[in-house]
C-alpha cells in the first residue's frame, strides 16, 4: 500500500533501481552478477554498521562512535591474534563482546545521566580511536590462515557472481536486524521511543533499559562490522574507517529513516548502503570523475531525502485535516 510509511523506502528503491539501471545501460560490466556481488562484499561493513545505526536513529538518538569502534575492534583483534597468539574465533568473540559492552556503557550514561547521545557518543568516538592508538600506532597485517580462509571463502553464483563469507554474514545480520526491529517487543519499543519518548514511558516502555540495549546493539553491530572490516582488509589500522559514522548515518537517512526518530525500516538502510556503493562503482567505471564526487552525490541525495521526509510530514497533516473535514461534512448529513 502506498502510504506515508512505505513511501520513503519506495523512493529509496527507486533511486537504487535508477542508479543501477543507469549502470546497466551504460556499462557492460554491470550486466553480470559480478558488480552486485562486489557491492554486497565491499559495502558489508558499512551496511552492518548502518543496521545498528538504524536502531539508534529510530529511537531518536545518534551514534557517532561507530567509525572509531570499527578501528578499535580491528586493532584489538589483531593484537589478540598476532601478539597473544589467540585463535581468531575467540579473538573475534572477545572483540565483539568488548565492543558491545562499550556500547552498553554509552547507553548507560545516556540513560542515567540524561546527556544527549550526540555528545556521549562523540566522547566515545574520541575514546575508541585513542584506545586503538594505545594498542597499536601502525597498520598491522592479521596473518592467520583462518582469517585468510574466511576472506577467501565464497559460494559461486551464475553470471560471474559470487556470495562471499562477508556478504553472507552481512545478509544474516540484516535478517537479524529486520526481525529484531519489527517482530520483537524490543523493536517496537525502539519505534515508540523515537516517536514520543514521554508517551512511550507512560505506555509502559522501559525507557532506560531500552536505551542501554539500543546502544549496546549499535556497539554489537559496529564491533561486528569492525571484525568484518579486518577480515576484508586482512589488516588493522587505528586510522581505519574515519568518517564511517557519517556514511552510516547517510545510509540510514537515504534508506528512508526519519532522523528525528520513530519512522523507518532496517531494510532501507541496506538499500541506502548499496546506493552509496553503486555511486562509487559508477564513478570508478566512468574513470574521468574523482572520488569526491561520491561525497557530493551522497550529500545531494541526503538533501533530497530530508526534504522529501519534510514534505511527507506536511502531506500526513494535510491528509489528516482533509479527513477531518470529510468527517465533519459527513456527520451533519447523517443527523
Amino acid at each position: 500500500m502506498l502510504n506515508e510509511r512505505s513511501l520513503p523506502i519506495l523512493a529509496t528503491l527507486l533511486v537504487f533501481t535508477l542508479l543501477y539501471g543507469f549502470g546497466f545501460v551504460e556499462y557492460n560490466g554491470f550486466r553480470g552478477l559480478l558488480v552486485f556481488s562486489n557491492l554486497l562484499t565491499d559495502n558489508a561493513f558499512l551496511i552492518i554498521t548502518a543496521i545498528g545505526m538504524t536502531f539508534v536513529i529510530l529511537s531518536g538518538g545518534i551514534d557517532l562512535s561507530v567509525g572509531s569502534m570499527i578501528a578499535f575492534v580491528g586493532v584489538l583483534m589483531a593484537y589478540l591474534v598476532t601478539s597473544l597468539g589467540l585463535h581468531p574465533i575467540p579473538a573475534m568473540v572477545i572483540a565483539i563482546v568488548v565492543g558491545t559492552l562499550f556500547g552498553a556503557l554509552m547507553g548507560l550514561i545516556i540513560a542515567y545521566f540524561e546527556i544527549q547521545p550526540f555528545i556521549v557518543t562523540l566522547a566515545g568516538m574520541f575514546l575508541f580511536r585513542g584506545l586503538a592508538y594505545l594498542i597499536n600506532v601502525n597498520s598491522v597485517p592479521i596473518d592467520h590462515d583462518f582469517v585468510a580462509t574466511l576472506a577467501g571463502f565464497y559460494i559461486p553464483l551464475p553470471g560471474r557472481g559470487y556470495l562471499s563469507f562477508i556478504a553472507i554474514a552481512m545478509l544474516v545480520l540484516l535478517a537479524l536486524g529486520m526481525i529484531l526491529a519489527r517482530r520483537t517487543r524490543f523493536g517496537m519499543n525502539v519505534y515508540a521511543l523515537g516517536g514520543d519518548a514521554q508517551s512511550a514511558a507512560l505506555l509502559g516502555v522501559p525507557v532506560k533499559k531500552t536505551t542501554i540495549r539500543i546502544y549496546a546493539l549499535s556497539g554489537f553491530f559496529s564491533a561486528t562490522a569492525g571484525v568484518i572490516f579486518a577480515i576484508y582488509t586482512g589488516s588493522a589500522y587505528p586510522l581505519a574507517a574515519v568518517g564511517v559514522e557519517l556514511d552510516a548515518i547517510a545510509a540510514v537517512v537515504i534508506g528512508g529513516t526519519l532522523l528525528s526518530g520513530g519512522v523507518g525500516f532496517v531494510f532501507g538502510s541496506f538499500l541506502g548502503g548499496l546506493i552509496q556503493g553503486v555511486i562509487q562503482t559508477l564513478i570508478s567505471f566512468d574513470g574521468t570523475l574523482n572520488s569526491w564526487w561520491t561525497k557530493i552525490a551522497v550529500g545531494v541525495l541526503l538533501l533530497l531525502f530530508i526534504v522529501m521526509q519534510k514534505y511527507i510530514i506536511y502531506w500526513v497533516r494535510r491528509y489528516s485535516s482533509k479527513d477531518e473535514a470529510e468527517k465533519s461534512e459527513a456527520e451533519p448529513a447523517q443527523s
Binding site: 517496537m188 519505534y191 515508540a192 523515537g194 516517536g195 514520543d196 514521554q198 508517551s199 512511550a200 507512560l202 505506555l203 526519519l258 526518530g261 520513530g262 519512522v263
Partner: peptide
C-alpha cells in the same frame, strides 16, 4: 494524548 503519533493505531 499519551500515545506515539508515529506508530499505527494497532501498534
Amino acid at each position: 494524548v499519551n500515545l506515539v503519533p508515529t506508530l499505527s493505531v494497532a501498534e
